[in-house]
Nucleic acid binder design. Sequence first.
RNA 1: GGCCCUAUCGUCUAAUGGUUAGGACAGCGCCCUCUCACGGCACAAAUCGGGGUUCGACUCCCCGUAGGGUCACCA
Length: 463
Amino acid sequence: MLELILEMTEKQHDIITRFPPSPTGKLHIGNARTALFNYLFAKHNGGKIILRFEDTDRARSKKEYEENILDALSWLGLDMEFPEIYRQSERTEIYRKHLEHLLEKNAAYISNEKNERGEEGSVIRFRNPNTKITFTDLIRGEITFDTKELGDFVIARSIDNVIYHFAVVVDDFEMGLTHIIRGEDHISNTPRQILIQQAIGAPRPVYAHLPLILAKDRSKLSKRNGAVATTDYREQGYLPQAILNYLALLGWNPGTEQEIFTLSQLIEQFDINKIQKGGAVFDIEKLKWINKEHIKHLPPDTFLAMVEQYIPETIRNEVALQGKLHKLLPVIQEKTEILCDVKQQFDAGEYSYFFDDLPPYTIDKLLWKDEREPIKAAEKLSKVFEILSEISEKNFSEIFIKEKIWDFATNAGRGAVLWPMRYALSQREKSPDPFILSAILGKEGTLARLKKAIGALENHKTV
RNA sequence: GGCCCUAUCGUCUAAUGGUUAGGACAGCGCCCUCUCACGGCACAAAUCGGGGUUCGACUCCCCGUAGGGUCACCA
């Protein structure tokens, strides 16, 4: 018996939050953050979060946007309680019930008037008691409004067609919402919603109004000043966990110096009391850094799966090249900030030396800046060739090669040895170091290139 | 304009009456080094202004100022 009572009281205190997008556009990155904070708060407290499509504007709501929002949400890994997805367009009966009740109570009335196009019609207006409303915001403290200035606001176009404010209040009540976490832009909507709440006899949930995400010029983040659709970030090669990580840090921090978080760490450490009051500028540079950090921590296979689409088909599909690609992967992973970089790197031919045969050498480029004698460079490369020849295929690894070459290079002048070696292998002024290159190219490939470079140096006509 | 919210380095932020105002991103410089990247180490950089309260204010109060939000039969 006692247990039952305990369970019931506990049930009462179970936290329920919600994410209520209106399907009139793709999932805005700012809304993604609102979803995240609702999610984190609910999960941290063992509560649940409800997804509710606010599609009372029938003209502007589109199925495709609903799909985009769902798509973006599942990409982010924010699994709402999917069995509980609501659409306001499917809840007309419920709203009607409450509307009729208000009409009966004379808390609302039908008003005959012209609409904005000058047509005769009628709407349902709320009978405003003109009181002062004070509510406590979890983030901002007490906020007071005089509702007089609201007038008798419209709550429905007709008995079967309610307006946002009314639908929201009814839904939040019917769905048992305990906490309403939403953008700061809703602060001024709160008093009128509380008025409706009082009229239908609903308890008041706890409010928390999040600071807004701002563009670089501190204006509202919009299409003009950057990508706003969450799925745009996916297309640009951001990791969902990086987006989540960055979004969480925009307006919140755990009070420690940790900056890189997994979703479960965020859930664990989330504390709504540590949310900032002021708006936060969306800084793409920091997002990129966070993305890079998350990429670094990816297992190589996961990374490969993610960037596969950005790697030229010829390399991806040819079995002979796949082994090379696999060895090259860590090099790519280390320098990738966003996934699309990989495509750009391949397009720029940054790795072409690795998969294609090299064109004839330009002697000048093979020479180290302090060692301009082709014949001397040839001698050094010959020595390198000799050393590498003695390494078995099996031992042809970066570490082993470096160990074998290092002393010679140090004695003979590292630049004078390593630069020609590296250039001989890559034909690029910028590349990974020659030991990595050798390991990737394999013994045969490495020796062939060295030999070719030595030949070029020995037979040079012009320097 | 009315109402409401906000205000620490360029940006995200820490410090909830007592700190040389801390960290991160970006920037700059140096080191590592054959180049690039990685990494390491320095430097530069802030409490919007004015009044209070207090022995003492980034911190509390008031007034300015600035920015933002909102004022629909959109959500």
